[in-house]
Amino acid sequence: MINLVINGLPVAVEEGSTILEAAKYLGFPIPTLCHLEGLSNYGACRLCVVEIGEGPKARLVSSCTYQVEEGLKVRTASARVVKARKMVLELLLASCPQSKVIQDLASAHDVRQQRFRQEHEDCILCGLCIRMCEEQMMAKAIGFRNRGENRSIGTPFDMKSEECRLCGGCMYVCPACQLRCTYMEPEKAICGGCANLSPPCLEKSSFEDMMCYMDPCVACEIRKD
């Protein structure tokens, strides 16, 4: 077991656990977007940053990827962490304003302004869908392409992948995508189109008929470019 201190509280967790897991064990909330139990840790969204170390050596690390170390001192909500987290949310809000998840997170963290030029993107490149496809669905149908501002997610050469079984796992785990089918929880849907259709999407019997696979969506007519 590894002993560490989180927000002043000592805790012992198994070797190889992450700070996020240890904090969860103690009940300290850390917001995440690119983390999902059952998938490997990636560290893309930077929302889960926490402060470790002391004095001039104190620094921020992503708690979902940083493994616990003996004697580690962690602060999950120090001023530095809160400032960074708010900026991350402001950046997210500036890029993906339509995402309900991001809107809610921003609101919960008291982000009251968005000072950047407004963009309308629908993907935050958190990579959850890629890990879902590879690790749970054993398909590896999609992946990251390019780097920097040209980075995107898709199938090789944007062609229909023979590995893809249209399982919908990628959509299911997406934390930000506005095209996500939210038939399970219509109150979380942004456009609500699925619920308002007649007959509503959520009552359709066959999985194939789910309109979220349709492009553009017949209900909200959001077109994927």
């Binding site: 560290g43 969204c45 030029r117 935050i124 990579g127 390019n146 920097g148 501002e149 040209n150 980075r151």
Partner: peptide, 22 residues
């Protein structure tokens, strides 16, 4: 240079360099 050369994994590096450039 950096907004092109960031790998794009960390959201704050990818978007941050773009926003700083802007």
């Amino acid at each position: 240079f950096l907004k092109d050369e960031s790998c794009g994994k960390c959201f704050t590096c990818r978007k941050g360099t773009q926003r700083m450039y802007e």
